[in-house]
Amino acid sequence: MKKIIFASITAFAVIISGCATKNTSVSSSSSVDSSKGSGGSDRFENLESLNSIANVYFDFDKFDVRKDMQKVIANNAEILKKEATNATIVVEGNCDEWGTDEYNQALGLKRAKAVKESLIAQGVSADKISIKSYGETNPVCTERTKNCDAQNRRAEFKLLK
């Protein structure tokens, strides 16, 4: 009888724990707030400039910053140096749906790291930048088209107080 009760309790625990949500984000800094919203306006001098921070896009299966994205990073760096002096910058790497979850997590992290290194080269303090990967779990477009996939292969910028 004890074996049946123990087996029932064990099976119940397995069923309950199997319902947990899988967290697939990877962060290079455990102190970074994982909220998706940007920081409040009380510390930022010019919110219009901050709204013009652009995403950086990548080619399929690549993490090197494209030549056409170098100007985007330079512009973002200037804005971040002038207007977000008190903020922490989180660069979030994203991927399209092609590839395994593990591969896309790693690729997203490499994309975020490449953007971070480019920002540092433009004079943004390395201490202010953290990186995070969402892999394929944060799509902005879900259609099955090449254009949609291209929109998902990106690095986004979040500012935290």
Score class of each variant (00 low, 15 high):
S17G: 05
S38K: 03
S38Q: 02
N51S: 15
E48H: 02
A11R: 09
C19M: 11
D42L: 10
V56K: 00
K62W: 08
S25K: 11
F12N: 07
K3D: 07
S28W: 04
F60P: 03
N55D: 05
T24A: 01
V32K: 02
S17I: 07
G40N: 06
S31F: 15
T24V: 08
V72Y: 02
K67Q: 13
S30L: 12
K62N: 15
D42Q: 10
E48Y: 03
R66I: 04
V14G: 06
F44I: 07
I16Y: 13
S38D: 11
F6W: 06
N75H: 12
S35H: 12
K2N: 12
G37I: 08
D59A: 10
S34T: 14
I5Y: 08
T21D: 01
V72A: 06
S35T: 13
N55E: 04
K36N: 14
N55C: 12
S17H: 05
E48R: 05
K67L: 12
L50H: 01
F12K: 01
I5T: 03
A20C: 04
S29E: 14
C19H: 02
C19D: 01
A7M: 06
S38Y: 01
K71H: 13
I4S: 05
V26G: 06
F58C: 14
S25W: 12
F63W: 14
F6E: 14
G37A: 13
F44V: 10
F6R: 13
Y57M: 02
K62T: 13
N23G: 08
F58Y: 11
C19F: 08
D68L: 07
F60S: 10
I9W: 03
I73T: 00
K62Y: 14
Q70K: 14
I5M: 04
F63E: 01
S8A: 15
E48T: 14
N55F: 00
S38M: 02
S38I: 06
S28G: 11
V72M: 01
T24P: 06
S8Q: 09
F6M: 10
S52D: 01
S25Y: 06
S8N: 09
I9C: 10
V65D: 10
V26A: 13
A13C: 03
I53K: 02
K22C: 01
T24Q: 08
S35W: 11
T24D: 13
S35Q: 14
A74H: 05
N51C: 04
K22F: 08
I5P: 03
T24H: 05
Q70W: 11
I73W: 02
V65T: 11
F58A: 10
S17P: 07
Q70R: 12
V56G: 05
R43F: 11
S31K: 09
T21A: 05
M1E: 07
S25N: 13
K67V: 08
T21S: 03
S34D: 07
S8T: 11
V14N: 07
N51P: 06
K62S: 10
A20D: 00
V56T: 09
S35Y: 12
S28T: 08
S35C: 08
E48F: 02
M69H: 02
I16L: 11
T24N: 04
K22E: 09
D68W: 05
D64A: 15
N55H: 00
V32L: 13
S29V: 13
G18M: 02
K2M: 06
F6V: 08
K3T: 09
S28I: 07
N23F: 11
D61E: 10
